[in-house]
Design a protein around this nucleic acid. Structure first.
Lengths: 190, 190, 190, 190
DNA sequence: ACGGACGGGACGTCCCGTTTGT
DNA sequence: ACAAACGGGACGTCCCGTCCGT
């Protein structure tokens, strides 16, 4: 019984999504995916005709963002974004993992290649947020600006949250940061 | 001189663009490109380190941006950025190359791999602008926001300029776009 | 098992040898070799890191030498070396492979590049033998000379054995050769 | 004036020989040669149809060895070799360059790749000496053994000469070393 | 004498996807 | 579910040798 867990496909999907997020689609090989899932290439191809097929099935940060934006019960775009950041914070940046994140940031900062990956991830999130806002009826330009502010806020919030020693929650810092950015944007004309 | 002028690179770029548009980026081999340009693979790789590079060559854009920001004789950050975009437009987006840019955009949009590369370029530009603004004494957060708005403006302006059929200049579109983005940012609270 | 047994490497070696003999080492491409073996370039490079490797694979010879020297139950250094050569002969030069060796030698002799590689191998063997002798308590200079004589004997023996038409065994030829070399060394003063 | 020295071919030959000695024929490119000669690839091909053509013209250590062996006025093979080593010492290892050699040896010893090159060079010298001896009428086997002893003597002498602090000449050390090696060879049977 | 673009072609790497056998 | 051999084919590197222009 159970010599092989029957959840191979699911494990493969998870592994693939992780790796795609970590280093991008085409810097991830099928063997990488299979290995992380504790399986082999053969098995991969038994479930997915193709490397691309594995993409349809996962759940990542951008999904959380999009769902939160869609579900937000508030009015102004900025507030919607703030709620989304809050959701992301609750899901991905619990206080417990703060220490881990601190070192992770240091590692990334020290490694140009990793910085690149990180930046790329940000791009995807920005696009996802902008789309989600447009779905809510926010005008195109406003959506894009709000998404951009949101992404920048996320980056800065992550910095602040990682380095903060008091117990501030990610969501709270994010909300404050967003306010500041918006104010800064308003001030660019003066 | 003039037997083997550097029209080879240009011919390669054109050929590549045509082929990418015709049958997609990764169904086009480097040899295909070289052949259509009447050259060989060797020559291709002499000019482009990489297959992707054929679409992203000549990246002195950030230099132009930084210089323009440093030299700007205006007051508000937004205006400084506007001047920088104007300079970039004059240098890199003359009316003559509009058609070329249109296909180039389409090709990039159709290919995740290339989109990634384009995004990376954008990140570099954003960072360069933010630094240049800080050099002028603009506060940190404001610099970052202004740079972000500038980068977004550049992207959108590029879209608009590529697709526009009337003779609008890049710089003019950029200035209008920046204004709109700033207004949009201000409106995110309402 | 038994559908794709590792006869592939052997087929590749044979094909390579044939072609090298027919038209020379560097007028033979890897693809030529693979094709004659009924395989493809991929398979070739799976088994041989290098085009040259197809002639120099499986280099455990020094291991055999060292073990034999350590285990030798005889007294004089020369006799120890003789036993080592005997062991090598039994392991690597069975009568069956004599013909193969003959062509292999011819091919190598005709190609400076390959000769170099062969020489390198010889150097490694000499050093290994010298060390193994020192381990037995043989004085430094004597060890080095004995190793040198041993290596030279191996080379010459290989020549003789490859070209001999009667059924002489490698080990016997080696022993005779060693004796002669030692005598020759003694005679260098007269 | 003499904007271009007229000895381009000679400079190319020298450069080529140096480089071939340093790192082997096919790890040396035509461009390397031209650069060391302060010229360009084009010029190289104007004088030599072919990379190989440049080989016919130089004078190296093995040439000195061969000449000295041919000219030796002595009787026993060992003595002939000794004279050859003496000639090499006079030509390549004057007392003045001892210090330089010491560091050179250290560098080589520390670098496996360089050790390999050095060893390779030794192979060539051995072959050259053996041939030269045979030319003198020395029997084949004796020639080869004597050459081998000579090469080993050269290596050891180089070690000793580099590290010696008193003023011993290369040739004297070489002669003593040779004697010792011959004695060691004789002792391998006891 | 020099500079340098160009063609040609081998080499070696990598990865996808298939197939056979367990 | 695994293991491993195989085919196929693009990519990028390297270097030789030719050819034009100054």
């Amino acid at each position: 019984m159970a010599r092989w867990q029957p959840d191979a496909p699911q494990r493969l999907v998870s592994a693939a999504l992780e790796l795609f997020a970590e280093r991008g689609y085409d810097r991830t090989t099928v063997i990488d995916i299979a290995e992380r899932a504790g399986l082999t290439k053969s098995t991969f191809f038994r479930y997915f005709k193709d490397k691309r097929e594995v993409l349809f099935g996962g759940d990542t940060m951008s999904v959380v963002l999009v769902k939160a934006i869609a579900a937000a019960a508030t009015s102004t775009p900025l507030e919607v974004v703030a709620e989304a950041l809050d959701a992301v914070g609750k899901e991905f940046f619990p206080s417990a993992s703060r220490e881990f994140s601190t070192t992770r940031r240091a590692v990334i900062a020290a490694n140009p290649e990793l910085k690149e990956r990180e930046a790329l991830k940000g791009i995807g999130l920005t696009a996802a947020m902008a789309d989600a806002l447009k779905q809510r009826g926010v005008p195109d330009l406003t959506s894009r600006v709000a998404a951009e502010l949101g992404a920048l806020a996320m980056t800065i919030t992550y910095e602040r949250w990682s380095n903060s020693t008091d117990g501030d929650e990610f969501g709270d810092i994010a909300r404050r940061t967003l306010q500041q950015l918006q104010a800064a944007a308003a001030s660019t004309k003066s």
